[in-house]
Each structure stands twice: as C-alpha cells, then as structure tokens.
Simulated assay, not measured.
Amino acid sequence: MRLLVINPNTSRGVTNRIREAADAMALPGDRFTTLCPAYGPELIVTEQDAALARQAVVDTVRGFKGPCDGIVLASFGNTGADPVRALRPSIPVVGIASAAFATARALGGPFGIVTFGKGLVPGLQAKVDEAGLSDALLGISCVAGEEFGDPGEVQTRFRSELEALCADMHQRGARSIVMGGGPLAGMARSLAPTCPIPIIDGTQAAISLIRAVAAPRGDHEPRRAAAPAET
C-alpha cells in the first residue's frame, strides 16, 4: 500500500512525529511518504491558520507525483479534506479526526479527548459536534497553561501531565481516549501500558481505515519494506 501522509502544519518536529507514527503501522511492501507544506502556519489554531493551511495542503498534493493508494491528512481539522478529495477522487482521503472519532464510536460508550493546549479545545469540540458525537464526549482535558513552546516537543515536555490526564479520564468513566492534535502522533502507543482503556492515535487509525478499503494499484514495482519518508 502506498500512502501519502500530510502534516498540514509546517513544523518539521511534528512532521517527524507523524512520520514515526505512520511508519510504525507499515507492513512489508508498504511505502509511506510523509510531507509537510512548503508554507503555512507552524501549528493550526485559528480559522485564519486553517484557511492558509488548506491551500498549502492542496498545493502539496498537486506537487506529489508518486503512486498513491490513499492520503492521510494528519491534523484534527481534517485540513483540506474536501478539496483534496475533489483533486484525487479515485482514492480514499482520511483526516485523523474523522478516523479517531470513528474508532471511538466503534468502541462505544463515553470517550474523552486529551490534548496539550487550551487554544485547541474549541476546534476539537467543533469536530466532535461535526461528527455527531457530542452526547458521547465525556470531556476535553488539556495541559494547564497557555504556552506550549515547540509543537514538535510537546510529547516530551508534557508527558507526565498527559499521562495523568489520561488516567483521570479513565477514572471519570471514559471507555476510550482520543489524543487530540497532530503533535501527539505516536504517543498513544507509549502511553498504552499506563492506561487500562484504549488510547486512540488519529494517524494510525486513519492508516488502518485506509488499509481496510484501499485497493493497491499495481504498478509492477517489486514489494519492499516501507521506505524512509520524505520531509
């Protein structure tokens, strides 16, 4: 399976996190290419950020010339999903919020979201509402404070706080937890041993969803292990 995984933010650190999370899902023969746009916000927080990032994502897809069986949009705004689907109508295009919430819905029961910045909460709530899961959402918990620094380093900087927030969400009755935000890609797996309920990684959920529905388009290339992603 050949996937294009796009970080709609321009943070190289976040792109590396997303690449690592994606590559952890690779099977023999898969080729995953992870890219971020050449321009746009380092982190999408405001609607103005999102508007600029949407165009940047479309330009990134236009510029990618390799074979592709599906596209993952690795931001919780599902940034650029509609125009990218219009551009590549023959392959699945999945945003990580859609994939994460579909997984939470399938698991059933109340779920929670854990994230790293207060400024992200309104956008996450809007995506929950859009997905029709408001009644199932137990709450959105975030690290205290307004400043989180380099988005590529939030996993390291706030690991203990994020772990505690997951534990609290479990104690409150959540049946599953969504890690909210592209910068948290890959963290669900490292936190799983400390939490008795499923922790959902949007990037990995999106790859699983595409794997279930995408038909590889044979181009007669030999099968190989997943190639190092481009950044």
Rank of each mutant, 00 (worst) to 15 (best):
49 D>P: 01
96 I>D: 06
178 V>L: 13
61 V>S: 02
15 T>V: 05
198 P>M: 08
213 V>R: 09
12 R>K: 12
217 R>D: 11
199 I>Q: 00
18 I>R: 02
187 M>A: 04
136 A>Q: 14
37 P>Q: 03
150 D>V: 04
199 I>K: 02
204 Q>G: 13
177 I>D: 07
148 F>M: 11
201 D>F: 02
119 G>A: 15
113 I>G: 06
31 R>I: 03
114 V>D: 06
108 G>W: 07
165 L>W: 07
75 S>A: 15
115 T>M: 06
88 R>S: 12
186 G>Y: 04
167 A>I: 14
140 I>S: 05
8 P>S: 09
212 A>M: 13
145 G>H: 10
55 Q>P: 01
32 F>Y: 15
106 A>R: 15
22 A>L: 09
185 A>Y: 00
208 S>Q: 14
173 G>Y: 06
170 H>P: 01
55 Q>Y: 10
28 P>A: 00
123 G>R: 06
221 E>S: 08
130 E>A: 15
29 G>E: 02
214 A>P: 02
56 A>Y: 08
167 A>E: 15
196 P>L: 07
187 M>T: 01
223 R>G: 01
173 G>R: 01
229 A>Y: 03
2 R>Q: 10
85 R>L: 11
37 P>V: 00
211 R>F: 05
62 R>L: 12
199 I>E: 04
40 G>F: 03
219 D>Y: 04
137 L>Q: 05
216 P>D: 04
158 F>H: 09
36 C>E: 02
150 D>F: 09
165 L>R: 07
103 T>L: 13
49 D>L: 02
47 E>S: 14
98 S>G: 13
6 I>K: 06
179 M>Q: 10
90 S>L: 15
8 P>T: 06
167 A>F: 03
181 G>C: 09
55 Q>K: 12
99 A>D: 08
185 A>G: 12
206 A>R: 04
186 G>M: 04
210 I>A: 11
104 A>I: 12
160 S>A: 14
219 D>A: 08
92 P>Q: 08
137 L>I: 07
210 I>W: 08
200 I>F: 00
28 P>H: 14
86 A>T: 12
36 C>K: 01
121 V>T: 12
66 G>V: 09
59 D>L: 02
41 P>S: 08
151 P>V: 03
94 V>A: 03
229 A>R: 06
93 V>Y: 03
145 G>W: 08
148 F>C: 11
174 A>I: 04
212 A>C: 11
82 D>F: 10
76 F>R: 00
128 V>Y: 04
10 T>P: 03
17 R>F: 10
197 I>K: 00
170 H>S: 04
109 G>T: 07
143 V>A: 05
198 P>H: 07
56 A>E: 08
119 G>R: 14
136 A>W: 09
15 T>S: 11
42 E>S: 11
16 N>E: 14
212 A>G: 12
150 D>I: 06
146 E>K: 11
27 L>Y: 10
48 Q>V: 12
63 G>V: 05
73 L>F: 07
65 K>A: 15
100 A>R: 04
116 F>N: 01
52 L>P: 00
109 G>I: 05
123 G>W: 00
92 P>M: 10
36 C>I: 05
75 S>E: 12
198 P>Q: 02
8 P>F: 08
106 A>E: 14
217 R>Q: 13
2 R>T: 00
162 L>Q: 07
213 V>S: 12
